[in-house]
């Protein structure tokens, strides 16, 4: 049995420990730092995004400046990644296409996030018959051949970037709604929510202080994983000629152009294709790493 002063010391020590307990986010950051592939993925995406969005201000050659006498040339000191059939600098075109592809990826993910999170939270929170009905509707939509409907939409209406965002976002929200609803359902049954209710906290405080921060991790993870699947869908549409229209170009159209000219000028295919694949690769690894890091059930180490 320790003496009384010592007990106090223990108590003070314990208090300190509680106060210095690491937050969910700091924990996640520590875990993420150990995952080298995820860090590489995140770093690559960051660099790429910076290069793509800052390229208009860097003073490199414009993506549309033609030089017909030059034609298609392999990589050289002046044009690092070579030039295309019209003598346009491939590097500038890839960075410009990346800007479109990344923008579509982010914007359509935002659309799907907005619909999916609101829908999923509502379904999970209301529960009962409303929930059953809402999720049945999602199930039915899941069965639709959506890629085909998006193609139909792009064929029928005037093709614009806005329509592309909306169409892709309208497809991708389903998974998000399912995941968020599942999370809200399990969280609502957990003891700490019950405890918060027993303490007499107001509903709004429970939702914002206790529910949202716990769902946030999952939302961030799936948003990160939605971006590559959106970019894939955009590139798929653009490759077939249903997406981004000339004179704009995305990575999908660049790969399509490259595939047509690969017999004589293989670099026109290889460079855009590797940028695209590397981006998908990085986003997927970063998303997976985030999931491992943010999963509250993962053990502390």
């Amino acid at each position: 049995m320790p003496e009384a002063p010592e007990l106090e010391k223990y108590a003070a020590h314990a208090m300190e420990d509680i106060e210095q307990g690491t937050s969910l986010w700091r924990d996640a950051w520590h875990r993420l730092q150990k995952n080298k592939l995820a860090l590489f993925g995140g770093g690559f995406i960051l660099l790429l995004a910076l290069a793509c969005f800052l390229s208009p201000f860097l003073g490199i050659q414009s993506y549309e400046e033609q030089n017909l006498t030059l034609g298609a040339t392999p990589p050289s000191a002046e044009h690092w990644l070579g030039t295309d059939l019209l003598g346009r600098d491939l590097m500038a075109r890839i960075l410009y296409g990346g800007r479109i592809s990344l923008s579509v990826g982010l914007a359509a993910t935002a659309v799907s996030l907005l619909i999916g999170v609101i829908y999923g939270t509502l379904a999970g929170f209301l529960g009962g018959k409303t929930d059953a009905l809402m999720m049945r509707f999602v199930d039915i939509l899941y069965a639709l051949p959506f890629t085909i409907l998006v193609i139909l939409l792009m064929v029928i209406f005037e093709r614009s970037l806005l329509l592309l965002f909306m169409a892709i976002g309208a497809v991708e929200w389903l998974t998000m709604a399912r995941i968020v609803r599942g999370q809200v359902l399990t969280l609502r049954r957990q003891e700490f929510i019950e405890a918060a209710e027993a303490l007499g906290l107001r509903k709004r405080r429970i939702v914002f202080r206790h529910l949202i921060p716990n769902v946030l991790g999952v939302i961030i993870v799936y948003a990160t994983l939605t971006v590559p699947s959106v970019m894939l869908l955009e590139a798929f549409l653009s490759f077939l000629g249903f997406g981004v229209q000339a004179p704009m170009s995305s990575w999908g159209t660049l790969i399509n152009d490259g595939a047509k000219a690969m017999e004589e000028y293989p670099w026109l295919l290889l460079f855009p294709a590797s940028f695209f694949s590397l981006t998908l690769f990085s986003l997927n690894f970063f998303g997976d790493g985030l999931r491992d890091a943010l999963d509250p059930r993962a053990s502390k180490d």
């Binding site: 590139a235 790969i255 690969m262 294709a273 694949s277 997927n284």
Partner: peptide, 18 residues
């Protein structure tokens, strides 16, 4: 498998042809 997942059909097809 991870490489395969990051090579969509419209990249894989032209590459295989090449």
């Amino acid at each position: 498998a991870m490489v395969g997942i990051c090579l969509p059909t419209f990249v894989m097809g032209p590459l295989l042809i090449l």
